[in-house]
């Protein structure tokens, strides 16, 4: 096979917006979106368990787990469940969003990383299969011992069954209308060392997992709650102002440029390196205003603290940000 090395990916704007290049129905109420950079260049690297923030054309921001192939550097895939109660997130994705549309992107970030182990037990509930799918592939690649228990309402509502069926007996598919509630205790077996248990799904499943793993060695169980709620402030598409506290200068950042570029235009140089929110070089202290974090570095607590931002990609939720520059 001959591959051509992609040209150097342009910085900034290219990673901040992605184009929908595929939209496929995977199961009843579940579809996948394939996303690529408008230039077709490399996207930010990711690891299994990662999610991205998608800023939809209607202004809402939603988080989705990546469920594609990390060895494909130019495409992200996310799985989206149509929430019956949706107020514009998943309903918008299912009904309005079309191939060719452009979405804003933050991350990928990973709060649910796959740590090294000899044995993995995966438990998915419904759309919670999405972050586990790349984990399953990775466990297989590493030659680890692994099994997956996958529950859903009905067989027809459960995505990716075709791909998973290739793994034979390692995968237990358990639609609730056929087999009832998941037999967690039977699947997990007795507490033992050397095992990592990963689970993603609705809150009742995760609570049951916590209870089922109570006697296991600490740090055995890792969970990610599938957040269905349509929350979160809408991303702003209007320009915002950045005030530089040390000089009193104010710069306007319009939707088409990054804070880093806007600062550069007024001669304020902030050292940068990757310009994709992954290396940490351009970290800048925030004195006032709420940053709209688009980097792949800060964890949830650090984001909530709001005291610093990576100006190569992150933006502002408020009309004005004050930076320690």
């Amino acid at each position: 096979m001959t591959v051509t090395t992609p040209a150097v990916a342009p910085a900034g704007a290219d990673v901040a917006t992605l184009r929908v290049v595929g939209k496929q129905v995977q199961a009843e109420g579940v579809l996948t979106l394939d996303l690529a950079a408008p230039s077709g260049g490399r996207l930010r690297d990711w690891t299994p368990g990662s999610h991205v923030d998608l800023v939809l054309p209607n202004g809402l921001t939603r988080q989705y787990s990546l469920c594609g192939d990390r060895f494909d550097p130019t495409t992200y895939r996310v799985g989206v469940l149509l929430e019956p109660e949706s107020r514009g997130g998943s309903a918008y994705v299912h009904r309005e969003l079309a191939v060719g549309d452009v979405v804003g992107i933050g991350g990928p970030r990973n709060n649910f990383p796959l740590v090294p182990a000899d044995t993995y037990l995966f438990v998915a509930g419904g759309i919670g299969i999405t972050p586990l799918l790349p984990m399953v592939r990775q466990a297989e690649m590493l030659g680890a011992d692994w099994r997956l228990l996958y529950g859903g309402r009905t067989r027809r509502s459960m995505a990716f069954l075709d791909e998973l069926s290739a793994h034979g007996e390692r995968v237990l598919v358990r639609p609730q209308d056929e087999t009832g509630l998941l037999d967690l205790a039977g699947f997990l077996g007795g507490p033992r060392p050397g095992v990592r248990v990963y689970s993603c799904g609705p809150a009742p499943l995760l609570a049951a997992m916590e209870a089922a793993c109570a006697e296991w060695p600490p740090y055995t169980l890792r969970t990610e709650r599938f957040v269905a709620a349509d929350g979160g402030a809408p991303a702003r598409t209007a320009p915002f102002e950045v005030e530089l506290a040390r000089t009193g200068t104010t710069v306007t950042v319009d939707p088409g440029s990054t804070v880093l570029e806007a600062l550069d235009r007024v001669g304020v140089e902030v050292l940068s390196s990757c310009r994709r929110g992954v290396c940490g070089t351009c970290e800048t202290t925030v004195l006032a205003g709420r940053p709209d974090h688009r980097d792949a570095l800060l964890d949830d607590d650090e984001r909530a603290a709001g005291d610093c931002m990576y100006v190569c990609v992150s933006r502002s939720l408020d009309d004005r940000l004050v930076l320690d520059l």
Binding site: D45, T47, N110, L114, L297
Partner: peptide
Amino acid sequence: PPRHDAPRRVLQKVLG
């Protein structure tokens, strides 16, 4: 990757 992932994630935090 994938073996690079876990040690990298740990050091990135420790030296961040």
